[in-house]
Structures are given as structure tokens and as C-alpha cells.
Amino acid sequence: MRLTLLIPELIWPEPGDRQTLDGLATPALGALLARGRESVEAAADNSADALIAAAFGLTDDVPYAPLRLLGEGHDPGTDHWACADPVHLRFHQERLILADGRTIAIDATEAGQLVRHLNDYFAEAGEAIEFVATTPDRWHLRLTAPADFRTPPLSAMAGRRVDRQLPEESGTAWLRRLLNEAQMLLHGHPANESRTDAGRLTINSLWLWGPGQLPTGLDRCFETVHSRHPLARGLAKVTGTACAEVPASFAELQQASAADGRILVLIEDLLRAVQYEDSDAWQQGIRDLEARWFAPLAAAVRSGRVELDLQSSTIYGLLGWNVRRGDLWRIWQRPTTIGAVAARLAGSTP
């Protein structure tokens, strides 16, 4: 089996956080990291979405919106789309911080009411655009023309400081106007008034990102993609690749896969813990992965049953470790620790 294993935020982003990193026992992962052939790409976009796209060969100007829409079960056709995800922006210590839709717990009724309100307003104003809420926290915007702007994916901004929502360029003036109008409409809607009365964070803005058309002619890279992520599922569909749920463990994956198959598995267990600086959740996630995935994987690689391509999006860049049978027999290379890897990548010492 040739396994591409994508795990966003495998390396904790604070190398000096000894409380989180010290004493975290991961001998199997440590052997994979120490003995695999490491690659580090200092990309402009180190997000989980960029990691997923790169696994399918997409690295520049990725049209995330139509791919994600396709993964949600909708046909984007040949239209131009942008992700228009509902968020809450708030000032904290003189900084503007973004909370994503999952964090502020938007329900389907609220999403439906707000999207209808936006669509009714812009239709009356003669704007031939359309908002589509595929889930309560994932919205899409059908555009009337190509929109050439680049903003980070929402996964890179959740829990982070926002400097600006759209580039200050002449070509985005109409989008900035649209966003300003949408913010005013959201602010005055009864759904948000009810949230305020209940002491809940309001849905006061949209995060626009990932514009483009659905790509064609992409090569098929895998026989099966195991993921719940709509972007990964969309990429699987557009490349004619079978898509399945994420196995609970490597043992379960082995039972479901051909011995000589080329498989991609995306595990998102660590992502939100890093986004919202929850070190306890990240530690527990690492321990679970060590038991369910890394320990049995190391044994399978050592026996020659698996060739592993482990990849992760991190603050240090897009990281990769290719590990084959002979690599794990280099026992003179002692297993490393996540803390040591983080310190090395950050240019410091543990």
C-alpha cells in the first residue's frame, strides 16, 4: 500500500511551550520523523486547505470555492464562485479576531434566514449574485464575473488576527462594497438580535476566499480518498476517485484497502486544537494518533507492507516525511520528539 497521510498541525506551533511538548511520548511517530526523508516547503499558504490541494497537484491560485461546493454535493457548473463563510469579528486587546461559524454555533434556521435576506436584498438591487449555504457554517457566493483576489483560507484565520478582509486593490472595489453591504444586512437582522439577547456571538461578517471556476483535466492521483473534508471530497470527485469515510485506525484502513492500493487519508483531529490554542486537546489528539495510527503504521512500514508519505500543514511550512521499509531499519538514528522537530524548524534548540 502507498499511503498518503495528511494530518494538519502535527507539530505544535510554539516550540518554547515546554509544558505542552515535554514528556509527550510518541516513539512510533518519533521514529517516522527521524528516519523518513523530510521535506519543508515554506509556502505562502500553509493552511490545511493548501495541504489538501497540493496532494492533488494544485499549488497556485487554487479555486477552492467550486471544489468545496462540489464536495458538498452541489454542481458548480461553469460559474465563478467564492467561499463566503459566516464569521464573527470582535476586537480583543486592540486586535480584530475572527471566530468561525463552527465556533459560534450557527444553526440551519439562522443560516437559511440570513442567506435569504442577503439574496433578496441584492436581487432587488439588481445584483446577479447568489449566496448558497451548503451547511450552516459553509456558505458560497456565485459571482457574475471572475474575481481575482487572494485571501487566506478560513482554516488559516480561525482564532487569528485579521488585518484586512479583502486586498485594497481597484479590482476588488465592487467586492468590498458588497461585503460592506452584507455586513450591514447581517447586523440588523432579527436572527442576530436574538443571538445578542441570548448572550451569543453574532454573525456579523463574511470571510471571502478561494474564488474561481471548477478545474478540468486533473490527473487521478489516488484510488481512494478517505475524508470528510468537502475540499478533499470535491477533488476526489473531479478526478474520478472513490471517496470514503475516515477509518478509526490504521487497522481498519488495512481491512478496507487493497494491499497494493494508492490511498489518501485526511485526519483533522489536531486542526481546531491549534486554531484555538487548546494544548490539552492537541496533546490528547497526538496520543490517540500514536496508538491508533503511528504505532501500527511504523510496524507496517518496517515489514514492507506500506510506503508512507506523511504530510502536515504547520506554522513552519508544509512538511513531509516519506518513509520506506529500509528507512526504519536505520536504528542508529534515534527516534526524535515533536518538541525537537519544532525547535529545529523554528531555528532554535529544545
Rank of each mutant, 00 (worst) to 15 (best):
H140K: 00
Q113W: 00
T103H: 14
I129H: 03
R90W: 07
G126T: 09
T134D: 12
V132K: 02
R116L: 07
F122N: 07
W139E: 11
A108Q: 12
F91D: 11
D107H: 11
I106K: 03
Y121C: 07
F122V: 11
H88F: 05
F122L: 13
E110C: 08
L118K: 04
E94R: 15
D100T: 01
D120T: 10
T103D: 09
A99N: 12
L114V: 03
A133Q: 10
V132I: 15
L96K: 03
A108M: 08
F91M: 13
H88S: 06
A108P: 06
E124Y: 10
H92G: 06
L114M: 11
L98H: 01
R95P: 00
L89A: 02
D137P: 04
A99W: 05
A125M: 13
H140L: 14
R95D: 06
E130G: 07
Y121E: 09
F131E: 11
F91N: 09
T109Q: 07
I106M: 05
Q93R: 14
A133G: 05
T135Y: 09
R138P: 11
F91V: 13
L89R: 01
R142P: 02
T134P: 09
G101A: 08
P136C: 10
I129F: 00
R90C: 07
R142M: 06
Q113V: 00
L89C: 05
H88A: 03
A125T: 05
E124D: 15
T134R: 15
F131N: 10
R138S: 15
I97Y: 01
E124C: 11
E127T: 15
V87N: 01
R95E: 09
L114C: 02
R95Y: 05
R102G: 15
I104P: 02
L114A: 01
R102V: 01
T134A: 15
E110T: 14
W139M: 13
L96N: 04
T135V: 08
A108H: 13
L89F: 07
D100G: 15
A108D: 14
N119W: 08
A128V: 09
V132M: 05
N119F: 09
E124Q: 15
G112Y: 05
H140D: 12
L89W: 04
L96W: 02
I104A: 07
D120F: 05
V115K: 01
Q113A: 08
E110H: 04
E130V: 02
H88R: 01
A108S: 14
A128T: 10
R95C: 03
L114S: 01
L141C: 10
L118C: 04
H140R: 06
W139H: 13
Y121I: 00
L143G: 10
R138K: 14
V87D: 01
Y121D: 12
R116E: 12
L118V: 04
A128C: 00
H92T: 03
A128W: 01
W139Y: 11
R138G: 08
V87Y: 00
D100Q: 06
I97A: 04
A123V: 06
E127K: 14
L114I: 03
T109Y: 08
A108L: 09
V87T: 04
F122C: 08
G126N: 11
E127P: 02
L141Y: 08
A105C: 08
T109A: 09
R138F: 05
R95W: 04
H92L: 15
L98Q: 02
D100A: 09
A128Q: 12
